[in-house]
């Protein structure tokens, strides 16, 4: 058995099992930690598929920054007490699980019909990644996709401003309370 097959069969069950465990986990912090396990498994798949730069980005951005933000919000709001399991719509959960299974089966048959389980990846990806994956990716990114790349920088600035605007309510309330206290002649 070739080595990359071994790596795949070690990490694919971990990825699927951690995703299912996240699904049934009542505690939000545990769910976030299981999602980090899942992201690391997906990062290993990126390495197998010849994308070492995206492996690093996945570990730094997803498993690092995004999940830390999630854990920060979970602990800030103190909502790790668990989820209510009461259903508001009758039969929603069985219907959702049935439809999810149908979706998974549909993807399976679509992949079998469209790609086929015998098809190996073509050789010669080293030629595409010539000079290293990061350099090759930078070449494509800054030549063919330069305008979308600049557009994402605008998007990130807008997102940062939006987060500040959405989160600033408390600061304004505090200054308002301070102004009222000063208006009444109270000593702050």
């Amino acid at each position: 058995m070739p080595l990359d097959n071994v790596v795949f069969w070690v990490f694919a069950p971990i990825a699927v099992a951690s995703a299912i465990a996240m699904l049934v986990q009542r505690n939000a912090v545990h769910a976030a930690l299981l999602l980090i396990v899942n992201f690391f498994c997906i990062a290993v798949f990126y390495l197998l598929l010849g994308a070492p730069f995206l492996f690093a980005v996945q570990v730094i951005v997803y498993a690092g920054a995004i999940m830390v933000l999630f854990l920060f919000v979970i602990m800030l709001l103190g909502v790790d007490r668990g989820d209510t399991l009461r259903e508001r719509l009758v039969g929603q959960r069985p219907a959702a699980i049935g439809l999810g299974l149908a979706l998974a089966l549909e993807v399976f048959f679509a992949v079998r019909a469209g790609v086929g389980f015998a098809a190996k990846a073509p050789v010669g990806f080293e030629k595409v990644n010539a000079g290293g994956n990061a350099q090759a990716l930078a070449r494509v990114l800054f030549r063919d996709y330069f305008f979308p790349f600049e557009a994402t920088s605008v998007l990130l600035i807008v997102a940062a401003i939006a987060a500040m605007v959405l989160a600033q309510r408390k600061a304004r309330a505090i200054t308002q309370a301070g102004a009222e206290a000063a208006g009444r002649g109270e000593v702050a």
Binding site: V107, F117, A119, K120
Partner: peptide, 12 residues
């Protein structure tokens, strides 16, 4: 790489 691409697609 010897792992068929379809395995990754089914996992995804």
């Amino acid at each position: 790489m010897r792992t068929p691409i379809a395995y990754f697609l089914v996992t995804s």
